[in-house]
């Protein structure tokens, strides 16, 4: 059954990839970590859950509506966060956004703790996210696969490809790449750096929204702290893959998924963290800039 562990690890790892892609995209453009990425996932998940519950939660139409709701909520929240937590801190050094995004995360988590007590369709600790996808499963030979993980895997790959296309082939994408490499030069070339950054935030947070919806569906519930739990793993993923590298985030997520799956299977869940960080140390010792980083030196 090691094969099943491996495959399931890969599929589940795509969840991490989905979260990490947005996270690393923001870093690539502004060289800052958006700690509120986790909270964005959470809020979008709640939005999706609400839509799904209101629409009955049994049809794929409802699921699609929920997905759209999550992505839009994510993108909107992302723009808000950029305005409040990043724009005012342009000259502030690399630590300042940690504080503001952490503050925003605390606010959002407490807000949703309160909301989940007050809003009728929500529940105090966990709110259900009904969907037809949750229990979908099939067998590929002797291997048991959960449909929702396959969907997440496909969506993650598709989004990665779409992002790649955007960055390589479109003007706005190329503008973003220029800003990534050298904001000053970009400005001199007439690129509206502010708009590029805003776009990056919107896209990345929209991705977070997608992740929120799909994760909510796969777990079947949403809770105020679901984002923070995911964020810690995302740190590991984006560093493994190389900060700023989207392909790295994808691969890193899959690697982490497999490592976790194997650890639980061969050892026990309580060693997951230790093994993961052990792996991280190893990678950083051999390749301090991550597996797939594009640059050898990281400017901070």
């Amino acid at each position: 059954m090691l094969l099943e562990d491996l495959i399931n690890g890969l599929l589940f790892g795509a969840t991490y990839s989905l979260v990490a892609i947005g996270f690393t995209l923001i870093f690539g453009v502004i060289h800052r970590l958006n700690i509120a990425h986790g909270a964005t996932i959470m809020v979008s998940a709640y939005a999706g859950a609400a839509v799904s519950i209101l629409l009955g939660g049994k049809s794929y139409g409802a699921l699609l509506a929920a997905f759209v709701a999550s992505v839009t909520t994510g993108a909107t929240l992302g723009i808000l966060i950029e305005r409040v937590a990043f724009r005012p801190l342009k000259d502030a050094g690399y630590l300042a956004p940690f504080a503001t995004t952490a503050g925003i995360t605390i606010i959002l988590e407490e807000l949703f703790l309160k909301l989940s007590r007050v809003v009728p369709i929500f529940h105090p600790e966990y709110t259900p996210f009904p969907s037809p996808l949750e229990d979908l499963s099939f067998h590929a030979g002797p291997i048991y696969l959960r449909g929702v993980y396959v969907v997440i895997f496909i969506v993650a790959i598709a989004l990665m490809a779409a992002l790649g296309f955007w960055v390589d082939r479109t003007r706005s994408g190329r503008a973003m790449r220029t800003v990534e490499q050298n904001p000053l030069v970009a400005r001199l070339m007439g690129i509206d750096v502010g708009r590029v950054e805003l776009t990056a935030f919107a896209v990345a947070s929209g991705l977070a929204g997608a992740a929120g919806c799909l994760i909510g569906v796969s777990v079947g519930t949403v809770g105020p702290f679901m984002g923070t739990n995911l964020l810690m793993i995302s740190f590991v993923v984006i560093v493994l893959g190389g900060l700023g590298s989207i392909r790295g985030a994808m691969v890193g997520g899959l690697v982490v998924g497999v490592v976790e799956s194997m650890t639980v299977s061969l050892l026990s869940a309580r060693y997951k963290q230790a093994v993961l960080f052990g792996l991280l140390f190893l990678v950083l010792v051999i390749r301090p800039e991550g597996l797939l980083a594009r640059r050898a030196v990281v400017r901070d």
Binding site: N8, R146, S218, N229, V264, S265, A269, R270
Partner: peptide, 10 residues
């Protein structure tokens, strides 16, 4: 499993 885990297939 750990508190934050959401996948219990293994």
């Amino acid at each position: 499993s750990l508190s934050r885990d959401t996948d219990f297939s293994r």
